[in-house]
Deep mutational scan, measured.
Amino acid sequence: APTVVALYDYTANRSDELTIHRGDIIRVFFKDNEDWWYGSIGKGQEGYFPANHVASE
């Protein structure tokens, strides 16, 4: 899976979202739409995150 790096912190608001912190490396499983992508950090943490909070490595 491609990876991206978090540019900003984001705290999940729902159970299907992913909390990310600046500098996190996120594996992107799919891009649901322009605004929300689905991916994982490490083991067990996965969910939707805002695409405008990340950039290609």
Results as ranks from 00 to 15, higher is better:
5 V>T: 13
21 H>Q: 14
30 F>Y: 14
41 I>R: 11
49 F>T: 00
54 V>G: 03
2 P>D: 15
53 H>Q: 06
18 L>E: 01
6 A>T: 08
50 P>Y: 00
31 K>S: 10
10 Y>W: 09
50 P>Q: 04
46 E>V: 11
27 R>H: 13
35 D>M: 10
8 Y>F: 12
3 T>D: 07
15 S>R: 11
16 D>F: 07
29 F>Y: 06
23 G>S: 01
36 W>F: 08
37 W>L: 07
32 D>S: 12
49 F>W: 00
40 S>I: 06
50 P>E: 07
10 Y>N: 03
38 Y>D: 00
18 L>Q: 00
15 S>A: 15
17 E>A: 04
52 N>I: 06
49 F>Y: 02
34 E>N: 08
24 D>F: 09
41 I>L: 15
10 Y>F: 10
56 S>R: 15
41 I>T: 15
24 D>M: 03
43 K>T: 13
16 D>I: 14
28 V>L: 07
24 D>Q: 11
38 Y>Q: 03
12 A>V: 05
24 D>P: 04
30 F>G: 11
54 V>T: 15
12 A>F: 04
1 A>E: 06
49 F>R: 00
15 S>N: 11
4 V>A: 07
4 V>Y: 09
52 N>Q: 10
14 R>F: 08
47 G>L: 01
43 K>E: 14
35 D>P: 00
51 A>Y: 04
19 T>C: 04
30 F>N: 15
8 Y>E: 11
12 A>L: 05
26 I>E: 04
30 F>M: 14
7 L>F: 03
2 P>F: 15
4 V>I: 01
32 D>Q: 14
33 N>K: 09
40 S>P: 06
57 E>V: 13
38 Y>P: 01
16 D>K: 10
10 Y>S: 00
11 T>C: 10
17 E>L: 05
43 K>R: 12
48 Y>Q: 03
42 G>L: 08
15 S>P: 10
53 H>Y: 13
50 P>V: 02
6 A>I: 06
3 T>H: 07
43 K>S: 13
13 N>S: 13
45 Q>A: 11
1 A>G: 07
27 R>D: 14
31 K>F: 05
6 A>V: 07
50 P>W: 01
4 V>P: 00
9 D>P: 05
10 Y>V: 02
32 D>M: 13
37 W>N: 04
52 N>A: 12
52 N>C: 11
10 Y>Q: 00
53 H>D: 01
5 V>D: 03
25 I>R: 12
32 D>W: 11
26 I>T: 05
38 Y>A: 04
7 L>E: 09
54 V>F: 03
14 R>H: 14
8 Y>M: 10
3 T>S: 10
18 L>D: 01
21 H>S: 12
19 T>W: 02
11 T>H: 14
32 D>F: 12
13 N>M: 13
25 I>Y: 11
56 S>G: 15
27 R>L: 05
25 I>N: 11
6 A>G: 00
32 D>R: 15
36 W>Y: 08
26 I>S: 00
29 F>A: 11
38 Y>T: 02
40 S>L: 05
11 T>R: 06
53 H>L: 14
39 G>E: 00
20 I>M: 10
5 V>N: 04
11 T>E: 09
45 Q>F: 10
30 F>L: 12
53 H>E: 00
28 V>E: 00
52 N>W: 07
57 E>S: 08
27 R>T: 13
15 S>F: 12
28 V>Q: 01
29 F>L: 15
33 N>A: 08
50 P>R: 02
21 H>K: 15
46 E>M: 08
44 G>P: 05
49 F>N: 15
44 G>R: 08
55 A>K: 14
25 I>T: 13
51 A>S: 12
51 A>R: 13
29 F>W: 14
29 F>R: 15
13 N>Q: 14
52 N>S: 09
11 T>G: 06
30 F>K: 14
3 T>R: 10
21 H>V: 09
28 V>W: 02
22 R>Y: 01
27 R>A: 10
18 L>F: 05
